[in-house]
């Protein structure tokens, strides 16, 4: 298996397991590479470290759960692999620019508008061309 396959395999491993405990040992083993070599190749391939990528995936999962479920922030934090609400909230804010609760409120508002006033989501030029 060439190096590219190994790095892609490790990236897909993060995608599939991001809510579980994933560390550099797991990933470098998955890629059959030394930790140092793996870290360097991953960063060269994706322009981010495996840890940065893992955190981004976890924040994405959290965004989906905040938007689509009624789970409490603390439950979501644990579900997506963070160990404390404080570190989760700080990371969420640094990535999205808002707190998890503010994000949830904003998404619910958008969903409400999509359901109740869908025409306000569509640029008028498209609406007039496509809607009878």
């Amino acid at each position: 298996m060439d190096l590219y396959h190994r790095i892609v395999k490790a990236k897909l491993f993060i995608d599939d397991n991001c809510c579980n405990t994933v560390n550099l040992d797991h990933l470098s083993q998955e890629a059959c590479l030394s930790k140092f070599h793996f870290l360097r190749l991953f960063k060269r391939t994706y322009n981010k470290t495996p840890h940065q990528y893992l955190t981004e995936r976890r924040i994405e999962k959290a965004k989906t759960k905040l938007s689509d479920t009624d789970l409490k922030v603390q439950e979501i934090c644990m579900d997506v692999g963070f160990e404390s609400v404080t570190s989760f909230t700080l990371k969420f804010r640094s990535v999205t620019g808002q707190t998890p609760m503010d994000y949830r409120k904003k998404r619910l508002k958008i969903k409400q508008i999509q359901n109740e006033q869908p025409d306000s989501m569509v640029p008028g030029c498209f609406a007039t061309k496509y809607v009878d």
């Binding site: 359901n115 989501m121 569509v122 609406a127 809607v131 009878d132």
Partner: peptide, 12 residues
């Protein structure tokens, strides 16, 4: 990004 249906048929 957006999934909104207008007039019950046109899906944006």
């Amino acid at each position: 990004r957006t999934d909104a249906t207008m007039n019950g048929s046109f899906r944006w």
